[in-house]
Design a protein around this nucleic acid. Structure first.
Length: 460
RNA sequence: GCCCCUAUCGUCUAACCUGGUUCAGGACAUCAGAUUUUCAAUCUGGUAAUUCGGGUUCAAAUCCCGAUGGGGGCACCA
């Protein structure tokens, strides 16, 4: 059975890049009816923080990337790493390297100057170190080659890698070691990770071989890039998943968008639900080159997903972004949401678009004029006539179609712009808003007439 | 500096594996037009790309080599 995993370290909040890696692992596993595990790589005691772990878990839940089974913590598996490290030491496959960081840095600089590959072949590789850190004794002379599911064959000259570090002590394993050991022990069949791990792969392959463990299949995803084409990070603006949640992007949008960043179906479909993605996903169709994160397209996608969401759900989604007193009447809100739906890219935008539905707008009287050339006399005249016409409509028939039927003949006679603009402006107090008939229906007869009255008195 | 990955419109990408069906298709953005009292939405149309140089072939975006560009890695981080 297929088994994948997402293995974040809680040294920062969940980023778009990490989330996309998690998503691809999830999609691949689900597509193959396999399992998707979550493993927290908290071996770095100084940098790992509970709040980051919490953010990662919350973000994954929000994205609905549910993992199978319990969360695995590397900090709880220390005894296991220690055992394997001791075994390797006994077998002479790893050794204690006593060199200090500063000495190694000097060695590296010298190598760079001499145009050599920077690496450390330790003087103590045959033993005698007794303290310092544990390094892998790299005696491999030949090339290390592996098949990447996305890129095909990749090979490295093992000699160029030197004796790399794998643990600070028996109880402090490093990424290269703990990560590959766990993948093998937990039965991970496919390691799907970022392209930045390609150069770690040959080292992990050597570790696995020394341990006598089975190696997984590897697939290295292209990186997500910022506008300047470098690896996406904070300086490109929002990079954390929670920031998108706070702005009011739907989790469906994020899943859809991240999937399209580096993957594409055979046809030209752009809008996907998570279930469709699972069905259509194929690792073979993953891109090789990095993809630039395009906020414009994300906004468009969010609009599309908002349009697909029913009003009742939308009201709940919008609620956190609205004033307390606006939330009292869900039915009233539902009508407003229906109207504003096609105008909203991000949920948080709604607050300053719909205030006039709840409070009488205050505005400059010039807004009432359709064009500069229209006189206040004419506006007053038209608004007065509208008021009289609307008064005729019974309260229970005050709906869009009826209002339209009553008002349109008059508007056609006097000019639509001349009549409809002042009405719309009187009701919304804005230069831009939905149409007057729609607003009038939502407002109701009483409020509509009141606002026309207000507008008229503004021009006295 | 060393190593690795990579290369189609501004951006995400299709066609590349299995060369001809492509004066390179779609989407976002952009520009025009239609509709409309305004904005949004919607509809129609337009601009816009195979990095360069060799080779293989009757034929190359597609295969091979090189150059160049871009990215990543080179920790007692992950």
């Amino acid at each position: 059975m297929i088994r994948t995993r997402f293995a974040p370290s809680p040294t920062g909040v969940l980023h778009i890049g990490g989330a996309r890696t998690a998503l691809f692992n999830y999609l691949f596993a689900k597509k193959e009816k396999g399992e998707f595990l979550l493993r927290i790589e908290d071996t770095d005691k100084e940098r790992s923080k509970p709040e980051f772990e919490k953010d990662i878990i919350e973000s994954l839940k929000w994205l609905s990337l549910d993992w199978d089974g319990e969360i695995i913590y590397q900090s709880k598996r220390l005894a296991l790493y220690e055992e394997e490290l001791k075994k390797l030491l006994d077998e002479g496959k790893i050794f204690w390297c006593p060199h200090r960081k500063e000495e190694l840095e000097i060695e590296k600089q010298g190598q760079i100057i001499r145009k050599e590959s920077p690496r450390h072949f330790c003087d103590f590789r045959e033993g005698g170190g007794e303290k310092g850190i544990l390094r892998f004794k790299n005696d491999t002379k030949e090339k290390i080659t592996f098949q990447d599911l996305i890129r095909g064959e990749i090979s490295f000259e093992a000699e160029l890698l030197g004796d790399f570090s794998i643990a600070k002590s028996f109880k402090e394993p490093l990424f290269l070691f703990a990560n590959s050991l766990d993948d093998s022990l937990l039965g991970i069949t496919h390691v799907i990770r970022g392209e930045d791990h390609i150069s770690n792969t040959p080292k992990q392959l050597m570790i696995l071989k020394a341990l006598g463990l089975r190696k997984p299949e590897y697939a290295h995803l292209p990186l997500i890039l910022g506008k300047d084409k470098s690896k996406l990070s904070k300086r490109h603006g929002a990079a954390a998943v929670y920031e998108y949640k706070e702005q009011g992007y739907l989790f469906q949008t994020m899943v859809n968008f991240m999937a399209l960043l580096g993957w594409h179906p055979e046809n030209e479909q752009e809008i996907f639900s998570k279930e469709e993605l699972i069905e259509k996903f194929s690792i073979k169709r993953v891109q090789k080159a990095g993809a630039v994160f395009d906020l414009e397209k994300l906004n468009w996608l969010n609009k599309e997903h908002i349009k697909k969401t029913d009003n009742k759900t939308l009201v709940d989604l919008f609620s956190p972004f609205l004033k307390q007193e606006w939330r009292k009447n869900p039915e009233y809100l539902g009508k407003i949401v229906e109207l504003e739906k096609p105008r909203i890219a991000v949920l948080k935008d709604i607050a300053d678009k719909i205030d006039f539905f709840f409070e009488e707008p205050e505005f400059d009287k010039n807004i009432l004029k359709w064009k500069e050339t229209q006189s206040f006399e004419e506006v007053k005249e038209n608004l007065s006539e509208i008021r009289e016409l609307l008064k005729e409509i019974p309260e229970n028939e005050f709906i869009q179609s009826k209002i339209e039927k009553i008002l349109l003949p008059f508007a056609d006679k006097k000019g639509r712009g001349e009549v409809l603009w002042p009405l719309r402006a009187a009701l919304s107090g804005r230069r831009q808003s939905p149409g007057p008939f729609e607003i009038a229906e939502i407002l109701g007869k009483e409020k509509t007439l009141k606002r026309i009255e207000n507008a008229l008195s503004l021009m006295k």
